[in-house]
């Protein structure tokens, strides 16, 4: 009983840890996107698309953590 509880608690902790990296990554990507659009506003549309793609790829890691919390 206690082992099961500890295991399910550890899954949540593991998911929390898995979100740190993507969180930082998306933050940095957003920083770069904002800086670049401030310097060259006419490219903002294209930069935003690239930002979304990069954020989606970084987010994949968090999503893998989310899935692993369910299946392991």
């Amino acid at each position: 009983m206690e082992l099961t509880l500890a295991l399910s608690a550890l899954k949540l902790v593991g998911y929390g840890l898995a979100t740190i990296g993507p969180g930082l990554g998306i933050g940095i990507a957003c920083y770069g996107c904002c800086m670049a659009s401030a310097r060259q506003p006419e490219l903002a549309g294209r930069l935003f698309t690239n930002f979304i793609i990069g954020a989606a790829l970084a987010e994949a890691l968090a999503l893998i953590g989310f899935v692993l919390a369910f299946i392991v």
Binding site: A56, E59, A60, L63, I64, F66, V67
Partner: peptide
């Protein structure tokens, strides 16, 4: 293969 998984789980999540 993970592309399919992340597409599905991102929208659902």
């Amino acid at each position: 293969v993970l592309r399919a998984l992340t597409l599905a789980v991102r929208l659902y999540g």
